[in-house]
């Protein structure tokens, strides 16, 4: 009895610590700026969705959302295709000088490098390609970052598939690539899903490259657009909290829907 009560207390305490900050942002987003700064209420006394309407009517938030969704979907899809092809080659073929192993290892080492290290040269590269402030500029860098991750994850999924499956298909007259497309990919489908989930979350949330590569609502993504609201002197808390809710909601809902697959991705495959 006492044990159960202690357990309940700890769980409740942890939940409160996690949820209180979120509650505060959500409740702030429903208050007026006057209520936020002058009255300091603990919950919205006159809740309204005006802050949200304001974001979409005057702050271009529908543009940011569209840019984010488009850039995320395209770059994750392309990275999945390139990553699966590469991972399959690494897992199933033996090349001279262990080339395939070296490629796999190099991609893994690249993942260790914090992206901020290549921020300047990537900016210079996109600048010289004339792709600043375009979807394509963002898609190129996001796809590349995702490829290293997709190869690494898909490798482990392909390794779990027995070679016999492809051999049987090839005896039946399939080409090697045909066997990959018709037999291996469908079997690895859960792996593709698990891999894409984490890639989607990371790409949707990415801020640093978006910060230097985009500058107008033409290509600004959700996190980048949200950061434009942060003034140096006067802070528009109402807009900022509403923007936080709009930015966080899609990704949190998405994460809840797919939480089963999430942990493996978050830990780079360290936990299955």
């Amino acid at each position: 009895m006492i044990r159960a009560l202690g357990r309940f207390t700890i769980v409740a305490f942890v939940l409160a610590l996690v949820l209180l900050p979120i509650y505060w942002m959500a409740s702030t987003s429903l208050k007026s700026n006057r209520e936020i700064t002058q009255e300091g209420t603990l919950y919205p006394h006159h809740p309204s969705f005006e802050n949200f309407a304001h974001l979409f009517a005057y702050k271009r938030f529908s543009d940011y959302l569209l840019n984010s969704i488009a850039v995320t979907i395209i770059s994750v899809l392309v990275a999945l295709v390139l990553g699966s092809l590469g991972a399959y080659a690494i897992v199933r073929f033996r090349l001279p000088f262990s080339l395939e192993r070296r490629v796999g290892l190099s991609l893994l080492i690249l993942r260790i490098v914090p992206p901020v290290v290549i921020l300047i040269p990537v900016y210079l590269l996109i600048l010289s390609l004339g792709l600043l402030d375009t979807w394509l500029g963002l898609i190129i860098i996001y796809t590349a970052l995702n490829v290293t991750y997709c190869v690494w994850m898909m490798e482990s999924f392909f390794r779990e598939i027995p070679v016999d499956l492809e051999e049987a298909a090839m005896v039946d007259g399939d080409s090697r690539f045909g066997a990959f497309r018709r037999i291996v990919l469908p079997v690895a489908a859960p792996g593709l899903v698990a891999t894409s989930i984490f890639a989607v979350i990371v790409t949707f949330n990415e801020f640093m490259f978006a910060l230097v590569l985009t500058s107008t609502p033409h290509a600004m993504t959700m996190p980048r657009g949200t950061a434009t609201l942060i003034g140096r002197i006067d802070t528009d808390w109402a807009s900022m909290s509403a923007a936080g809710v709009v930015g966080a909601l899609p990704i949190v809902l998405f994460a809840f829907l797919v939480q089963r697959h999430l942990v493996r991705g978050l830990t780079l495959g360290a936990v299955k």
């Binding site: 996690v18 949820l19 979120i22 942002m25 979350i201 949707f204 949330n205 801020f207 959700m222 996190p223 949200t226 950061a227 936080g244 930015g247 966080a248 990704i251 949190v252 998405f254 994460a255 809840f256 939480q259 999430l262 978050l266």
Partner: peptide, 10 residues
């Protein structure tokens, strides 16, 4: 899961 997946900017 919430804190990990919420956009870092947020």
């Amino acid at each position: 899961i919430i804190p990990m997946v919420v956009t870092p900017v947020v």
